[in-house]
Write a protein that binds this DNA or RNA. Structure first.
Lengths: 232, 232
DNA sequence: AAGTGGCTAGAGTATATACTCTAACTCAAT
DNA sequence: ATTGAGTTAGAGTATATACTCTAGCCACTT
């Protein structure tokens, strides 16, 4: 593998694990056993590494967030979308953590990220419209659908950071699996709009993603509020 | 005003404006015209300043997120809650920006923040239950309500960062006013559960918070996707 | 054999950052 | 007047961080 690609891969790995703020270019170089000079031969600066990683992320998301033109959407499609989106978020989880910093630091990234957001929101809206046309959910007017798509996107993109801040690391390991429990939350959002004929099927599939982290949190008493450990 | 309080105030101001990551203790001291040594006389380290600010934030939120015991909730209450929460978020907006970093940096803050989150989720759940009892929204079972409360909280707490990342600074100034447009999004979330008798009233109030930022984004074409300026 | 261009090492640098240390000032109580 | 606790100034420090510079290596062409 080319050095340039190894740098990207190692950066992604370390950024995801420790957070970009805690990983210096020297760390990345040391991790790969190359010199800092070598790293700077391939990238002008740290921002460029982040930008390139964002481009990879964007490409990934743009490939799977498409509405098929030749057929109508199924319930399976819906969950395929969700799983893909969460997998992407997991693979590039460092991005959303310091997003604001990155965007302030790099005008180009800011521009591109904004366009990317609108693309995502439009795609989600199109998917929602597709599900309506397929008779899975109730039709809604355009304004409502757009606002709904935005809520959906907010929940999806911030589910990870919620897990990180709200759950106890000792009790619940945050991994790709835990992340997918965000799917449960998204389905909760949509349930009121599901057509009666599909309600049972939707809820059955939703059950697969039932959160371990949160189950029963509303019934806990004040006394054990801070205790989050799971004891079998 | 005591020096200690001036340090807190200046830190909050600078953190909110530039982000904690970009503000050093020396910056804060210089801003106040005091020496770094003086600052470190009052605070052992930077984390302590952040912690203290979080405590202020927490106190604020805990005071207004209470369910009245002596009477049932009204529609006004609901919007009062929302406005208060968004005002609090605005006043301490630096917190949610680098939250993950803060929590990794300070074990004490991590513990307290987690407890705070659960408190908020329980409070929101209690408020939702109160609205149901008052006949404003349809009753739902406990599991659903908890999950719903969590979605609501996710949208509320991340609305600001969405605005920051998705909107064009030139076109739409992000301020306390823009932030409140998150209220619009929250109401969208709740509309399916509003009892018919209240639907009109809810939507009328919602209209006050109609986003300027997002209006019509779903209908924009690819060509002007990146253009976010508002021209009257 | 000599040259060429891509790649790499590694020492080095300017700046920043969080934080320390000591001396000195203020002012109310004695 | 003296004391002494609380407060402040300001120079200083150890470390980190992003990044530079120069010399040289290696594979391949001519």
């Amino acid at each position: 593998m080319r050095t340039r690609d190894r740098i990207l891969l190692a950066s992604l790995e370390l950024f995801n694990e420790k957070g970009e703020r805690n990983i210096t270019t020297n760390h990345v170089a040391a991790h790969l056993g190359i010199s800092p000079g070598n790293l700077y031969y391939h990238f002008r600066n740290k921002s460029d590494i982040v930008y390139e990683l964002f481009m990879q992320y964007q490409t990934l998301v743009r490939t799977y967030l498409v509405v098929p033109k030749d057929r109508s959407l199924s319930l399976d499609d819906k969950f395929t979308y969700l799983e893909a989106v969460f997998d992407g978020l997991w693979a590039f989880r460092f991005l959303h953590r310091d997003l604001q910093h990155f965007l302030e630091d790099d005008e180009r990234l800011k521009r591109d990220y904004r366009a990317f957001t609108w693309f995502c929101l439009e795609s989600v809206t199109a998917i929602l419209a597709g599900l309506e046309r397929a008779g899975i959910t109730q039709p809604m007017d355009d304004t409502r659908r757009s606002a709904f798509a935005l809520n959906l996107w907010l929940i999806v993109t911030n589910w990870m950071s919620f897990l990180k801040t709200a759950s106890d690391d000792d009790g619940v390991k945050i991994d790709r699996e835990a992340l997918r429990q965000g799917i449960y939350q998204v389905v909760v959002l949509e349930i009121p709009y599901v057509q009666p004929a599909y309600l049972e099927a939707v809820m059955a599939r939703q059950a697969r993603y039932q959160p371990r982290v949160l189950s029963g949190w509303s019934t806990r008493t004040t006394a054990d509020r801070s205790v989050q450990k799971i004891h079998p």
